[in-house]
Nucleic acid binder design. Structure first.
Lengths: 214, 214
DNA sequence: GAATGTGAATTTATTCACAGCA
DNA sequence: TGCTGTGAATAAATTCACATTC
């Protein structure tokens, strides 16, 4: 499944850009565009063309000089590069407002992220179903992961519970290796676990900073 | 309201870190910590101490040599730097799953972001209330902004509608100057409008990339 | 002729390392 | 002595510019 190049050589900032390219390329493909140059793509997403070519170059040589990139081929290559040519199983821990909204969000399953379960410690929500996610008790987590491999955990618990939840999720008997944390705290995890933080109030503060000029 | 330094001199990457420092400092303050050194703070959030000191240095000299930083003072300075010593009015455009979940989310109002309205074009949701946000028809947007100044728009409409929605929101008669876009498309706005993109499926793809090693 | 792929140059961000102050 | 504030050094990311290929 892994590819020939070394992932460690790919700058971390390149990865979200690949997702951006992928989206635009799919849109182009849907409109019947078969070939695109780095310059045309750059114009469409307001980026430098050399940036795009360099980003691709970490993964191989996908283009044709004098011509450009074949759109379907490029989509396929980016999907392979991002590990999207397979399905990943996801659990959501925390069935509050955000967790349940995410459970019913279509965008994830469209990209091959399969929600296999939800967990919460509150009896009020245990047993309820949100989209494909039936809420189980936190106490069932270990048993559940013995029967179903879980690749990714989305954490939507309150801030004060986030670190303890993550400690539990990444414990060897559960073995989750990737965490998307929506709790507004910086969390720690072992080096072999990828953690990505989404922080909504931090995003608003970013806007506030740039709004606050005279 | 604006401060003495030039915002253009502050690296964009510093701004989200300020939000991070702020959160940790508030937690420390709640635990009764009065003073902290850059090194202690760095240890707590897994960052380099010089990074923290340099970030602060863009805004002034808040520390005391040989001692460290006074926690309440530093909180106050960061809040001023981020423009959080005032309240910002926010509208949510798109009353779907995510929009309604955000409307009821407490974290925003705690930071001084005041939800003043929600808008949607679907008759199914117009008139409903979610937390502090009553959903109005999109057609009322112009009238509404004539009566109530709106600083920030959170966009939670479907991807295909995002650019048109943003074009409307930033039009001179509405005058929104900051946009937090949850729609999974890169959107364009005039240079004087700050746009911040939150892309959930891109975050999952990031995890997928690092998961996909042998 | 046109557009890729990539070393080199540049710009931006991080970290070092230390002078200077409490 | 201890820790800040910051120039200088380093590292990382972006952009240029051009040789190379179709």
């Amino acid at each position: 499944m892994a590819r020939a190049y070394d992932k460690g050589m790919v700058p971390a900032v390149t990865v979200p850009r690949l997702a951006l390219y992928l989206r635009k390329l799919r849109e182009l493909q849907a409109r019947g565009v078969r070939t695109i140059s780095s310059q045309d793509l750059a114009d469409k997403i307001d980026l430098n063309a050399a940036q795009i070519r360099k980003d691709f170059s970490y993964f191989g040589e996908f283009g044709v000089r004098g011509v450009g990139y074949d759109v379907p081929r490029l989509i396929d290559e980016i999907m392979k590069s991002l590990g999207l040519n397979r399905s990943w199983s996801v659990i959501i821990v925390g069935a509050g407002l955000l967790g349940t909204a995410l459970a019913r969000y279509k965008g994830f399953s469209e990209q091959g992220f399969r929600l296999v379960g939800m967990f919460d410690s509150s009896p009020k929500v245990i047993g309820k179903s949100y989209g494909p996610g039936k809420v189980r008790a936190m106490s069932e987590l270990e048993q559940f992961t013995r029967e179903e491999a879980v690749d990714i955990a989305i954490i939507t618990v309150p801030a004060h519970a986030a670190q303890a939840t993550i400690d539990r999720i990444v414990a060897p008997n559960i073995g989750v290796k990737a965490v998307l944390n929506f709790a507004p705290v910086k969390v720690f995890a072992p080096k072999d676990v990828v953690v990505r933080q989404v922080d909504l109030s931090s995003e608003l503060m970013f806007l506030s900073f740039y709004l606050d000029r005279e």
